[in-house]
Design a protein around this nucleic acid. Structure first.
Lengths: 209, 209
DNA sequence: GACTGTGAAGCCATTCACAGCT
DNA sequence: AGCTGTGAATGGCTTCACAGTC
């Protein structure tokens, strides 16, 4: 169970399997094969089995996997059996949208606080939450057991805000600023770079001519 | 169509190098080494050289790369020497935010049209653009030379909208719906799955205990 | 001396193929 | 007979190390 090095790609797929299993459970499916999961999420069945094998033996040979059971295990592996309190830093367009993104709520992520250093925004409310100044982050994080933050600020202040977050006790950041954040090794960072994703598409379009 | 098989990871990094070079050029830097680029974007210098080598020889041994020249080449490789007209499908929270995201504009992407199938939204304006019904997509795409679309709709209509886009002549889609889209092989799709990214973080946080 | 470009080596992830269960 | 779990083979990306150039 405590496997050593697990490919990042495996974790990504595990998250996708997990959501697929949720749907399958809702549709009342009791047993599912690696082939059916594979079909549903667009990978090979060997890939599904290999990915799951990093964490244990969840299936029955000749039969398949019990949907409910496998869903439970994938959620547990991903750390989703409990809910997560998160904060949002940056109340601009992107931040506001993320706040009302239903997908987070559905997977157990609660945005409890919003922070922005724009004085004109502080005190205003966004979806029932008052925008607070960055100085409040440290206390808020302690009081509300927050481990993760979504960073949706301009590049110019991204590094500075990341450092403030880390000093405040945050140890995982989902960063939307198109900039490589410099953080201590023990802090987890995932970057979502919107332009890069469009540029990969233009690259491929260019190749086709 | 020249290069053989170029790793997706190389394209992603190329996009990052490109933006880094833009900054370097703005700061007036004329020559730059693979080591400096590497340092700036958080990869190894060998990686930088290898990535660039897929596309040609852009540097001078013993000297480094000319910033302006290399920037030009990276933009060209990515297909960014021209601007791109794109459309947005889905005028919900996420769609609205993406519309006002400055990063797209800065890299030459113009959102020219917004479409949504919510009748209460149609006709309303978002950042100077009138929201149009999906039936208009086909004509709009033809008239405005649109090749790419951003898809920010609920999972329930994502596949259907993707098919409409493809029928309308779109051949690259940036998909935000957490669902695997079924599309013909010649259509390029990139998925940005916000929840998956948070879940990778929770996985890693779980591992640390 | 400094830095690029690149074959070779090393490493990691995916696919194959089949033994092992039910 | 059907499907999982997994060692072995394959394929692909990254790192190494150095020859080549300025």
């Amino acid at each position: 169970m405590k496997a050593f090095k697990i490919p990042e790609a495996t974790i990504i797929r595990l998250s996708v399997y997990s959501r697929y299993l949720e749907q399958a459970e809702k549709r009342g499916i009791v047993t599912i094969s690696s082939g059916e999961i594979a079909e549903g999420v667009g990978v090979s069945s060997a890939q599904v089995r290999k990915d799951l094998a990093y964490f244990g033996e969840f299936g029955t040979r000749g039969v398949g996997y019990n949907v409910k059971d496998l869903l439970y295990h994938t959620l547990k592996i991903l750390g989703l059996n409990d809910e997560w309190n998160i904060i949002l830093v940056g109340a601009g367009n992107l931040g506001s949208a993320l706040l009302s993104y239903r997908g987070f709520r559905e997977r157990g992520f609660n945005v409890l606080g919003i922070f922005d250093n724009d004085l004109t925004k502080i005190g205003r409310s966004l979806v029932n939450l008052k925008i607070q100044p960055p100085e409040e982050i440290a206390q808020f994080v302690k009081e509300n057991n927050v481990k993760m933050a979504i960073l949706a600020v301009p590049v110019s202040v991204a590094q500075e805000m990341a450092e403030l977050l880390i000093k405040s006790g945050i140890n995982a950041i989902l960063n939307f600023a198109p900039k490589v954040l410099n953080v201590p090794r023990e802090v987890e960072v995932r970057n979502i770079d919107l332009s890069v994703n469009l540029e990969i598409l233009t690259f491929h379009l260019g190749m086709k001519k």
